[in-house]
Design a binder for these strands. Structure first.
Lengths: 96, 96
DNA sequence: TTGTTTGGTTTATAAAATAAACTACTTTAT
DNA sequence: ATAAAGTAGTTTATTTTATAAACCAAACAA
């Protein structure tokens, strides 16, 4: 009856990150940190998990002399997100 | 930007339980167990958490000679569920 | 040149989910 | 009558996950 929810996405912070990245071409670490209100440590860990799963790419570049971590969603990540939303709907609309 | 998700509801099993209970007047432990595919131990723990929060009531009765644990959603639980769904929508529809 | 800020990572701790083991009682088979 | 098997759970232990604290390196500001 209840299909399992992708555990990688069923996490408040990771879901927020994915949500942000869907709306944007890419986003920098400090921006994601600010928008989600996460601590840097937590964000770093969760970005790693998303990247390891292939849901996002994490590109380490420089912005002038400063390091800059740029994140983008991948097609795989987008698909996973859409499937997660679809699955979740079964939980949220008990009528169907 | 992202409102926090009620941690009590942002759990696959507890959400499934709430989803079931919304669609029904009440439900017995074994039925919930079967529908969710949870182990009895896990279900017992999660029902306790929902009951402690006042989201459900757990009534211990008998069905003939056998014990029977009957669960129902409370108005508080229903409200919490609706708020959870509303909050979650912000994560799921990145456009808004 | 010595704080201070930025941009993170690593590691330790707390919380949550899950499973395994156990209790209590009932029904069925012998 | 009694042993075996099933039902209905609870308790406890283990694993996983989330989170925060501590740390590091480079750059900038005084």
């Amino acid at each position: 009856m209840f299909k399992p929810l992708d555990p990688l996405l069923h996490s408040e912070l990771r879901l927020a990150v994915m949500s942000l990245l869907i709306g944007a071409e890419s986003a920098e670490f400090p921006y994601i940190k600010e928008q989600t209100g996460a601590t840097a440590g937590n964000l770093s860990v969760q970005l790693d998990k998303l990247a390891t799963a292939g849901y996002i790419t994490v590109e380490k570049t420089f912005k002038g002399k400063r390091p800059c971590t740029l994140c983008s969603i991948t097609p795989v990540g987008l698909k996973a997100f859409e499937e997660y939303v679809e699955t979740l709907r079964e939980y949220l609309n008990p009528s169907q």
